[in-house]
Design a protein around this nucleic acid. Structure first.
Length: 306
DNA sequence: GTCCATGTTCTTTA
DNA sequence: CTAAAGAACATGGA
């Protein structure tokens, strides 16, 4: 049985596939915004859909909401029918119609691995999956690991919806809807775009990049944008997200997705994490300010104040 | 020891 | 009352 190469789970010569040695485990910085979550969903989909869940290990019960849900009872011997994304949520649908979602928070990872790989610290949930119809099929594991535990697993069942509390999806957002959403608040456009109830999926990186692409200053009140600015912003958000997804997300340091591949969009960041560096358009100096408690990067020259 | 970090939610303030 | 600002959550890297 050649399960390793069959499922293309990564290059065995990659450091990730060697046993971890003390001091040899490099730190990784994971950036789970919409493009990274989309990349995880796309890589997991062909590996997981159609497989049967043959084992469930919840190492930390407090990452599960509602606490005390009988996850093993619900998942064991069920088949994964679908994996999709809603905002930053990874939604998994079972063959009996029950659903749950995983949120990666700041440091969460959802990976597909062989069972013999060492289990890293802060691994909170392990699902063992096998090919459905094959007798004695090689088992694999889906592991949820999250050092800071801002992420977790939410059980939805058949009645709750992953749309709950989520604004519209930016990739299919009409200008009229964006205008209606932004009209509801006088907060800065930067803060408004981070609000998942107004628009789903954007995080600190892609808000900064989108505002730069639209040449809008982050401090402009959301409800004071002109119609032209809103139309430009809508196009900018879609363009930035599409490009980031095409590059499999943004990787700083040595992040790899579930297939062992890194993202590449960080090389195309125009403002994020570039404070003090020259603007790629005008050569002016990229500024960094704190807005809503988060670092915010922009070019004062390209992004005019109001 | 210090400061900083991708996200969300609860609490405090205006 | 509501909207907005701020703190909190937990861990690890620089």
């Amino acid at each position: 049985m050649t399960g390793y190469t069959l499922y293309n789970i990564g290059n065995p010569s990659d450091a990730r596939y060697s046993p971890k040695l003390p001091g040899h485990c490099k730190p990784s910085k994971y950036m789970p915004e919409l493009p990274e979550v989309e990349t995880v969903v796309r890589t997991l989909c062909p590996l997981l859909v159609g497989k049967r869940i043959s084992g469930v290990r919840l190492e930390r019960s407090d990452i599960l909401t509602p606490t005390g849900t009988d996850l093993a009872g619900h998942l064991l011997l069920r088949t994964v029918a679908d994996i999709s994304r809603r905002g930053k949520r990874i939604v998994i649908t079972l063959d009996d119609g029950n659903r749950f979602y995983v949120h990666l928070g700041m440091t969460g990872r959802l990976t597909f691995e062989t069972c013999d790989r060492p289990i890293e610290k802060h691994t909170h949930l392990i699902l063992e999956v096998r090919e459905k119809e094959v007798e004695s099929a090689v088992p694999f594991q889906v592991r949820f690991r999250d050092p800071r535990r801002f992420g977790g697993v939410w059980w939805l069942g058949r009645d709750l919806s992953p749309d709950d509390g989520m604004g519209p999806e930016p990739l299919s957002l009409r200008v009229s809807r964006l205008k209606r959403q932004l009209a509801t608040t006088g907060r800065s456009i930067k803060t408004a775009l981070l609000d998942q109830t107004l628009i789903a999926g954007l995080g600190n990186i892609y808000v900064d990049e989108s505002l730069f692409a639209a040449r809008i200053h982050p401090l402009v009140p959301a409800n004071r944008l002109t119609d032209l600015q809103i139309a430009t912003l809508n196009r900018a958000i879609k363009g930035i997200l599409r490009k980031a997804i095409n590059h499999r997300g943004s990787t700083l340091r040595d992040y790899r997705d579930a297939n062992g591949e890194s993202g590449g969009f960080q090389l195309r960041h125009k403002v994020y994490d570039r404070a003090g560096k020259p603007c790629r358009l005008c050569k002016g100096e990229i500024q960094r300010i704190i807005l809503g408690g988060r670092s915010t990067h922009y070019c004062p020259n390209c992004q005019a104040e109001i």
